[in-house]
Design a protein around this nucleic acid. Structure first.
Length: 327
DNA sequence: AACCAAGCCAACCGCCGGAGT
DNA sequence: TACTCCGGCGGTTGGCTTGGT
């Protein structure tokens, strides 16, 4: 009812984030932990909407985020989960702790949708149709969102959150089965077989403090070093896939050590606790690829004992153990 | 070499539910 | 109980990049 906008539109900066802004945000989160986003712009001097800050953090600066290079297994997982859950990207993302819902959503919209369509067009198209089949069974990739909500704008599930979570829990077993099927279709696609994504050049260790981040950014901002500040607009691509993770992920890793629940911790899409991963990630950042993640996936699938309907299973499985196995 | 179209992705927008007062 | 605030989610868009002509 007449709720004011989350931030005044005047004097609020929009558009791509600059490295400086990222730095400010990361530094702030390091100090205070994520959450209380409302206070972020005022406390940091960022001319950004609180929402924008949160988004930037969760989609980009948060530790443990892997960008680009979706593996076959990830693809399959997404396809299956999408078939099961519809366009609940946050829920889907909770099964892929390294991915953000935005990333998954984008990937779905730009790649997977088409892929599935193609597969269906080519029908019978054997190959990986284990996955495709599952997806096509439900909604064929398009308009998937409608399967959930329907009501009104069709934006929300018709069921309240609690119910949705319960439903998700019951879906877990179905999901598992589907995943088992998918993976068993290609038993040869073992972690070892999956070519790890190329190691980003210069990915050594991570910033674990504001200082380090600053140092990283220094190189970043140096005119010679890549695209320079102006390119910040395109924090995208180049800077993104290579340098950014260094500063963001790790820098923030220690930050989240202090994140005391803040905003986190209610739904299935809950973000994992990164508090332990800081240094470990550094070591593994070098060449991990995604293979280990799928070892975890496999063990998750095989571990029938653990599944008492926990939501955010992967999130449970993943960060609590040894994160280094993951990244 | 220049132009155009398609693809991709980061960010924005609006809505909703939960928590707090 | 009613109201407000805040954070989260999914859909959509704008702008940059890449590929084709």
């Amino acid at each position: 009812m007449g709720r004011p906008p989350c931030c005044d539109k005047v004097g609020v900066k929009k558009g791509p984030w600059t490295p400086e802004e990222d730095l400010m945000l990361v530094s702030y989160v390091q100090e205070h932990g994520p959450g209380n986003w409302r206070a972020v712009p005022t406390n940091t001097g960022l001319m950004r909407c609180s929402k924008s800050c949160r988004l930037r953090w969760t989609n980009y600066l948060r530790p443990g985020i892997k960008r680009g290079n979706f593996t076959d297994q990830e693809e399959k997982l997404i396809i299956h989960l999408q078939a099961l859950l519809g366009n609940r990207w946050a829920a889907i993302a909770s099964y892929l702790p390294e991915r953000t819902d935005n990333d998954i959503k984008n990937y779905w919209n730009t790649h997977l949708k088409k892929k599935l369509k193609k597969m269906q067009a080519g029908e019978g198209g054997g190959g990986d149709d284990g996955a495709a089949g599952a997806a096509s069974g439900s909604d064929g990739g398009d308009a998937a969102g409608d399967r959930t909500g329907g009501a009104g704008a069709g934006k929300r599930p018709a069921v309240p959150k609690g119910q949705w979570e319960r439903r998700l829990q019951t879906d877990i077993h179905t999901a598992r089965q589907a995943l088992r099927d998918a993976l068993s279709l290609e038993p040869s696609v073992t972690p070892a077989k999956v070519a790890p994504p190329p190691t980003p050049p210069g990915s050594t260790t991570y910033a674990s403090s504001a200082e380090n981040i600053a140092r990283l950014l220094e190189g970043w901002l140096r005119p010679g070093g890549g695209k320079g500040p102006e390119a910040s607009g395109s924090t995208s691509t180049t800077a993104t896939t290579q340098q950014r993770p260094q500063c963001s992920g790790e820098g923030a890793a220690s930050a989240s050590a202090s994140h005391s629940g803040g905003a986190a911790g209610n739904t299935a899409a809950q973000t994992p606790d990164y508090s332990t991963e800081t240094s470990k990630m550094a070591g593994s950042a070098a060449g991990a690829g995604s293979a280990p993640a799928f070892s975890m996936l496999e063990s998750w699938l095989l571990d029938d004992g653990m599944g008492h309907g926990e939501v955010g299973l992967m999130a449970d499985v993943v960060p609590l153990g040894d994160p280094s196995e993951f990244f």
